[in-house]
Every structure is written in C-alpha cells, then in structure tokens.
Amino acid sequence: MCENLDKDNDPSGESFNRRLEAARERLEPRMAARQETGGTLSDLGLVVRSGTELVSALVVGVAIGWGLDHWLHARPWFLIVFSLLGGVAGVLNVWRLVRPDAINTKAEGPDDGSGRI
C-alpha cells in the first residue's frame, strides 16, 4: 500500500510521464484516423462535384442557345454555337476543380492569383 502510494507520487514525475506516453500511444492512431476521415470527406466532395460541373455548363449552354433560337428565329445556329461553348465551359469548370494549384487553395491563402476557381 505504502509502496504503491510512493510510486504514484513519484516526485520526479517519471511514472506520470510514462503513463502519459502510454495514453498518447493509445490515442494517436484514433486521432490520425479522424484526420484521415476529414481529408476523405473533402476529397469525396471533389469527386462528387466534377461530374455535375461538366454537365451543368452544357445544360446552361444548350438552354441559352435554345432560348436565343426561339426568340430570334435563328434555329439552329445559336443552339449549335452555345452547345459547343457550354461543353468548353464544362471542361473549364472541371479543369479549375482539379488543376494542381486549385486542390490546395485552402492552405495557400485567400487568393491564388487568378481570383477564381
């Protein structure tokens, strides 16, 4: 009993340090795993975004082209032009999403020079 008490109140704090180390070792993998999950969530978000980014610009292009044709009775010229432009804009959207300097914008600061993503 007395010996046990002595061990816990070790003035050099060696026992405490040892136990702290053990606790850290026990918790470290869990904390690392948690950070991993955070990374995966935003990566997953990137994957989910890329598909719709590509399609949505095309949708907007086709809608504008069709609307202009309808309004100016120029079928099918505006539809052709704006479908192509929409497709290009979609590829541009995906490029902005995945280009090497866009992925880590969070660490770089508020503005990456181009001002847009």
Binding site: T52, E53, A57
Partner: peptide, 22 residues
C-alpha cells in the same frame, strides 16, 4: 468571354442539379 460567362452561369445549375439528382 462567353465561355467564362457560361462557366459562371453554370454555378447555380450545378449546385441545384447535384443535390436534387443525388
């Protein structure tokens, strides 16, 4: 300029289509 404008206008479309479609 038209490409950039289309890219800009596609934002609300992609935001809404993504959530709705999923």
């Amino acid at each position: 300029i038209p490409i950039e404008i289309l890219s800009f206008l596609s934002r609300p479309v992609s935001l809404s289509i993504r959530l709705f479609a999923n």
